[in-house]
Design a protein around this nucleic acid. Structure first.
Length: 304
DNA sequence: ACCCAGGCGGGCG
DNA sequence: CGCCCGCATGGG
């Protein structure tokens, strides 16, 4: 593909759709898996995202209008206008009625502030394997380095593809990762997590069914995930929330723990189990949404 | 230098 | 069971 083709494709008019309560910036930056893999840019009121899947490449640009967010998108590869549109809707949970979500999780002053401040932040839905790898990498780690490690694995193990003149690297498959050695995986910066990554990839390659989990009860799926070495309760909940959109999952990390203890437990140290039960009782099947707002609002304001 | 990061497995009492 | 420790690595 050369300059001419590139020019021609860029002249394809972008499709448009509107969404209310949708903020791409916070949805991308709030530590969800999309942020770990995609190319995201921001300038002023515009934010751009491009991401590749096995089916093709998506480019979107968001801008705020008075009452909603305008999403302009182009697609390459196998996507059609309607499948691209559905892909965006699904990945960003745009089918969710945020008035309903907010009325369910706006239980107190703290949540009211968090919602006010982060209005439009969505829980995203990501590929289960991408989510699994990303959150195995996340343990005892920070977001910046998680992105670096995932990116490095993508460069090293991801297949190359060409969608309409755009050369992209796809997210590495579990088959590919399962064949890598632990030493090699360490070279991506994975550190002590390399053995867990290999173990999970091998399990998936040998029949651990990520699709099966979709049909299981939340608690059964969680238990199943935790059978894999390197996946504990927190990572399992992240996989279920961000990979399967199980909105009842409430991942408890160090930030959530601190913020919840300060805000709701009167500063008392609590066990993860207690925090999960508290959240589940308070926000029920929307606990995952509450979690994302508590997490990112807590971090934005350095609470804890 | 020291501390922390979207935790987890293993070992010990 | 619950508790405590080490763990790769890089940035503040």
């Amino acid at each position: 593909m050369h300059a001419n083709d590139r020019k021609r494709e860029d002249s394809i008019p972008a499709r448009e759709m509107h969404a209310s309560f949708f903020d791409l910036k916070s949805s991308i930056e709030s530590g969800q898996p999309l942020a770990f893999h995609c190319d995201y840019r921001e300038n002023g009121k515009l934010s751009n995202l491009s991401y590749a899947t096995a089916k093709g490449l998506m480019e979107m640009e968001c801008s705020r209008t008075e009452k909603a967010t305008l999403i302009r998108y182009r697609h390459f590869g196998e996507y059609t206008d309607s499948s691209a549109r559905e892909e965006i809707k699904r990945r960003f949970g745009l089918g969710e009625d945020m008035n309903k979500v907010y009325s369910r999780i706006n239980t107190d002053r703290f949540m009211d502030d968090a919602i006010m401040r982060l209005k439009g932040m969505r829980v995203t839905e990501n590929d289960p394997w991408e989510t699994m790898l990303s959150f195995i990498v996340s343990q005892f780690n920070n977001i910046k380095r998680i992105r670096g490690i995932v990116k490095s694995m993508k460069e090293r193990y991801g297949e190359s593809a060409d969608y309409g003149g755009r050369a992209v690297k796809l997210f590495p498959t579990y088959e590919r990762i399962s064949k890598a050695s632990v030493e090699e995986l360490m070279k991506c910066g994975a550190g002590f997590r390399a053995k867990y990554i290999k173990c999970a990839a091998e399990a998936c390659a040998e029949g651990f069914s990520l699709e099966e989990l979709r049909r299981m009860e939340y608690s059964d799926a969680r238990e199943e995930l935790m059978k894999l070495s390197g996946i504990g309760g927190k990572v399992a909940d992240c996989i279920l929330l961000f990979g399967y959109r199980r909105l009842e999952a409430f991942p408890v990390d160090v930030w959530i723990k601190r913020v919840v203890e300060i805000t709701y437990m009167n500063g008392r140290k609590s066990k993860d189990r207690e925090i999960i039960e508290f959240a589940s009782g308070k926000w029920g099947d929307m606990a995952g949404y509450a979690q994302q707002y508590i997490y990112w609002y807590g971090r934005m304001n350095r609470i804890g």
